[in-house]
Simulated scan of single mutants.
Amino acid sequence: MTLIDGKQTADQIKAEIANEVEAMVGRGEKRPHLAAILVGHDGGSETYVAHKVKACEQCGFKSTLIRMEDNVTEAELLEAIDKLNADTDIDGFIVQLPLPKHISEQKVIEAIDYRKDVDGFHPVNVGRMSIGLPCFLSATPAGIMDLLDRYGIPTRGRRCVVLGRSNIVGKPVATLMMQKRQPGDATVTVCHSATENIAEITSQADIIIAALGKPGFVTANMVKPGATIIDVGTTRVPDATRKSGFRLRGDVDFDNVAPLCSYITPVPGGVGPMTICSLMKNTLLAAKGAIYPKA
């Protein structure tokens, strides 16, 4: 069993980005600039954004954090997005999700200029991804593909089961896994809450990508020997032994499943660091005008 180290891989990629950024600056080009809007004070969101700011420092990017209270109106948030769309110094930006219930997340996503949509959520980027055109890929699926690539895990012709059909992970990663590319060219099945006999389906899979948000859902009887497991789950579960009072648990029963696998990602330290790394890669592409040429 090989443990897929997302943290180490992400650090390698960020170092590569930092070298490229310094070369850009040395040529007199602008330093990439990523902005983030954080609404409210959700603990998880605060942590994620802090990690993103730190990653910007590691990559040599400029970063801007815009904080808004959770009682901000939808109109005020959309106005802030318009300003970032118009700011020529900002190469890419994100609005940290989730948002307060009185704000339409879809309306917010669609308000972002797709040429600065480094989260890869805008319908233009999602549509271009679905037909294999250059675009900003959703960060978590892109990170998963990087891990498969850098660990040399074969995907062509393999059976891949994706657990979950979210717009952020399940759907896009299923799309990427079936495209004519490496990693890719897999035979993909997507399972969800209405799927019957899930264990029967997963037990035939060469690759399982679990993105359900249900701690410990994937058990040993659902996995065939030699399978590759990518665990996207990051659910906080109570743990009185931790100072924080909780620990992160994945969608896979790691202790019992890991001995069966050829490759598996841990939680934490697997897919999570790669998600932020993919955001950095998209920001670099935006700064260079590599996907959408700058005017």
Score class of each variant (00 low, 15 high):
V169Q: 09
M68G: 01
V271N: 05
I109E: 05
D113E: 02
D251Q: 13
E74G: 10
A194Y: 15
D87V: 12
L176K: 10
R128V: 01
M24S: 07
L279C: 04
Q58K: 11
R236P: 12
R115E: 02
G226E: 13
D253C: 04
V162M: 06
E20A: 15
D251K: 15
M274H: 08
A36W: 08
Y114M: 04
L38F: 02
G164R: 00
I13Q: 08
R181A: 01
I291P: 06
L3T: 14
G132I: 08
L248I: 06
G233W: 02
M280C: 07
G184F: 10
G43F: 12
Y292Q: 01
E76Y: 10
V21R: 12
T155P: 12
N71A: 13
D70N: 14
Y292S: 03
P141L: 05
A286W: 00
T202A: 03
N282H: 08
P259Q: 07
V188P: 07
A240V: 11
G44C: 11
I276A: 04
E69L: 12
L147I: 07
N197Y: 07
L99I: 04
G250I: 05
K101I: 10
K288Q: 11
A35Q: 02
T9C: 09
A258M: 09
V169Y: 06
D91G: 10
M177T: 11
E74W: 07
L176N: 13
I13V: 15
A295H: 11
P32R: 13
N167S: 14
Y48A: 01
S244D: 04
A227E: 14
H192P: 00
E110W: 13
A80P: 08
C160R: 14
L279G: 12
I229V: 08
K52Y: 01
T235C: 14
L147M: 14
P215Y: 01
V190T: 11
I103W: 03
L212N: 07
E76F: 11
G250E: 04
G28P: 02
P123D: 00
